[in-house]
Amino acid sequence: MPSIHVKRGVFLPLLEGEEELIRKSVSGVLQEYEAAQENLIPILLQVQEMLGYLPGPAMEQIAAALKIPAVDVYGLATFYNQFRLHPPGKHQLKVCMGTACYMVGGRIALECFERRLGIKEGETTPGREFSLERVACVGCCTMAPVVVVDEQVEGKVTPTRVDGILLSFEKPAAPGAEAAGQKGEDAS
């Protein structure tokens, strides 16, 4: 039986001082545009370019300026795949879902990441360490299934390789990184 998950959005708390930055950035962008509904997409694109994603307070501020319900802005931001609602992580994982990768188990790789990190595609881990996305095709189908880790392309990503990729981030600065990660988790 096919099923759709209608999961309630889980949004990470803002970092210290982030709210101030959001307000300033959004105000700056809003000044450049006429407060008309048809400018919503350009405004959102520019805000996303500055902040890396569309945080809730930014969407609310834009909605207030354009005098439309905030849920409209949210509806638009969830309609287009271009918009991100979760902050980019320190490490960005892009799982390829092009035809070739999909056929040889891209889905499995994505699910492995989801399980290991405890997040869904498009989301970010609580400490903002990893963000997980799906991409269409990265252009190296012979290496399928492909995962792009930050800027580096990883080929033939099996579930074991998924563990390997995640482990490689834990190793180098073991004590410091782990402590930082734990702190982030506690804070959230």
Binding site: I4, M59, P69, V71, V73, Y74, T78, F79
Partner: peptide, 22 residues
């Protein structure tokens, strides 16, 4: 009031609130 709205696309389209809050 504008509490309700559509979000997402295609098969995932739902009627929901801002950021899917209750």
């Amino acid at each position: 009031v504008g509490a309700l709205g559509f979000s997402r696309r295609g098969i995932k389209r739902v009627v929901t609130t801002f950021q899917d809050v209750s």
